[in-house]
């Protein structure tokens, strides 16, 4: 990693996700690559859900942050492939989600099983109970499903696997 690249990574890791402000766009896996080529910094970002309204905000914040850190000249481009998946969320990102009260995505296979009609087991981020129930597979933002805990009775968001 070049000095410029590592500077860029640290600047980008300060940018919060507009909808979940405890987690950075780097932790979320939205920043795909940062490469210095012939003195130009090339940053590739990827949308989470196609229709996620935060995508444009994130792109703007990335541009603003790089400008503020005087890292010009740079290029920010959106890439679609390989498509974003929840497995791109870092371990520290998952931990921060849980602390914030959002159940982090279980491993991929859990939701695939659920898509086949089997029940998945999601742990309540509030009390740790595994006795939880999905209320709706669509939640407050495109990336979340809506659950409730049968033990502490609290509703909570689950960051669903994609």
């Amino acid at each position: 990693m070049t000095l410029l690249e590592s500077k860029a990574w640290s600047v980008l890791s300060e940018i919060e996700d507009p909808e979940i402000p405890v987690i950075s766009v780097v932790d979320l896996g939205i920043v795909r690559t940062v490469v210095e080529e012939e003195g130009i910094l090339k940053v590739a970002i990827t949308p989470t859900y196609s229709g996620c309204p935060a995508t444009q905000v994130i792109e703007d914040s990335v541009v603003d942050a790089l400008k503020a850190a005087h890292l010009e000249p740079f290029e920010v481009k959106t890439v679609l492939s390989p498509s974003w998946s929840t497995s791109m969320i870092s371990e520290s990102g998952k931990f921060k989600l849980k602390e914030y009260g959002i159940a982090p995505p279980a491993d991929d296979s859990t939701d695939k099983m659920a898509l086949m009609g089997e029940e998945r087991q999601i742990t309540c981020p509030n009390c740790g109970s595994k006795d939880t129930k999905m209320v709706s597979q669509f939640g407050s933002t495109p990336c979340k499903a809506h659950f409730k805990c049968k033990d502490c009775l609290e509703p909570f968001d689950y960051f669903k696997c994609l």
Binding site: S50, G51, V135, S136, F138, P142
Partner: peptide, 20 residues
Amino acid sequence: LEQDIAMTNIALDLIGQAKM
């Protein structure tokens, strides 16, 4: 409410796909 949210989520996904 849950289904209202489900439908707006599906709408968002589709409109995002249209953009691509």
